[in-house]
């Protein structure tokens, strides 16, 4: 629609590192719709899907410098500025999405301050997970994972956690992962069922283990300076849209994972449930403790919140 009052519309550039077809892509498109409708075209969102503007790191740096206004971001992004957010992605910290959501809600006031210190405004969060393992040979127990070459994202935390579990964390580019599984450079890869399905890994790695090591938040952030330059009613408008679509995304994620698992199974991937998840969690506990130690008071506060909300 044409902007009310004939003025140039306010354009909010949003960078989405996931494809448009994912729960995140759909949520952001919906957010853009809501904002434009409710402002009668006075506020418009310019959405770039599929990481068209670059890596997650490029996105968060873009929000910081002001070449983007908004993005959702996790360990590969916001954690580069606020390292404490990586604590949410410690392995086996949560048994389900509710636990994580409770922890994130409890930590929000603290996070808001930490983000603001680094030039970001926290508006809400999407969720992803549970991350699972897909492998070339079946992983049914903690013993099976020992010594496996496990591809993880290029993040210090993930490499430590994989090593702590007894696997060998390999941080190769995701583009090499398919060939890596095919040729045996790596034995396994991790990600949410939906990520693993869309990557087509099932054809070379027909075993998916539901170890559910990570449920994680994807903070929806706005550049602090840009946010403060908005009129109060514009802020309200955006905040309301974020609140609405993030609730929808959470419901959609659970459905997407169910659908992905069904599709993977139809494609001949064996879905493996583990019975000794307690033992997996115990195995990485020292690594988590060691990782948490590097942080100051804010980090310790988050650890307390995680302990209160997460697994005992």
């Amino acid at each position: 629609g044409s902007p009310a009052g004939g003025e140039e519309p306010l354009v909010i550039r949003y960078g989405n590192i996931y494809p448009a077809s994912t729960t995140f892509g759909k949520a952001v498109d919906r957010m853009a719709e809501l904002v434009e409708e409710r402002s009668d075209g006075a506020v418009r969102m310019d959405v770039f899907h599929s990481g068209a503007l670059g890596s997650e790191q490029v996105h968060i740096e873009g929000v910081r410098e002001g070449s983007l206004e908004m993005a959702h971001t996790g360990t590969a992004g916001i954690a580069l500025f606020v390292p404490e957010t990586a604590l949410f992605e410690q392995w086996y910290a949560f048994d389900d999405l509710d636990q994580l959501a409770r922890a994130f809600d409890d930590a929000t006031p603290l996070l808001e301050r930490m983000y603001a210190d680094k030039g970001f405004t926290l508006l809400g969060t999407f969720y992803n997970g549970p991350r699972t393992l897909i492998s070339t040979s079946p992983i049914r127990s903690l013993d099976d994972v020992q010594g496996k070459q496990l591809r993880v994202p290029g993040s210090d935390l993930y490499v430590r956690m994989a090593n702590g579990l007894g696997a060998r964390g390999v941080s190769m580019p995701l583009g090499d992962a398919f060939t890596g599984l095919q040729t045996g450079t790596i034995d396994a890869l991790e990600g949410s069922p939906d990520d693993l399905r869309s990557g087509g890994y099932g054809s070379v790695a027909p075993y998916l283990t539901l170890d559910e090591h990570v449920y994680h938040p994807l903070s929806i952030v706005y550049g602090r300076d840009a946010w403060e330059a908005l009129a109060p009613e514009q802020r309200e408008l955006v905040q309301a849209a974020v609140d609405e679509v993030s609730a929808e995304q959470r419901a959609a994620l659970e459905q997407a994972n169910v659908d992905a698992l069904t599709e993977l199974e139809e494609d001949g991937v064996e879905i493996i449930e583990i019975t000794d998840r307690e033992a997996w969690a115990d195995r990485v506990a020292p690594t988590s403790a060691g990782f948490a130690q590097r942080f100051g008071p804010d980090g310790q506060r988050i650890v307390e919140i995680l302990d209160a909300a997460g697994r005992p």
Binding site: R64, E65, L80, F81, G119, P153, G154
Partner: peptide, 9 residues
Amino acid sequence: IQQASHTPQ
């Protein structure tokens, strides 16, 4: 601007 940011690994 980016000195507040750290490399992933």
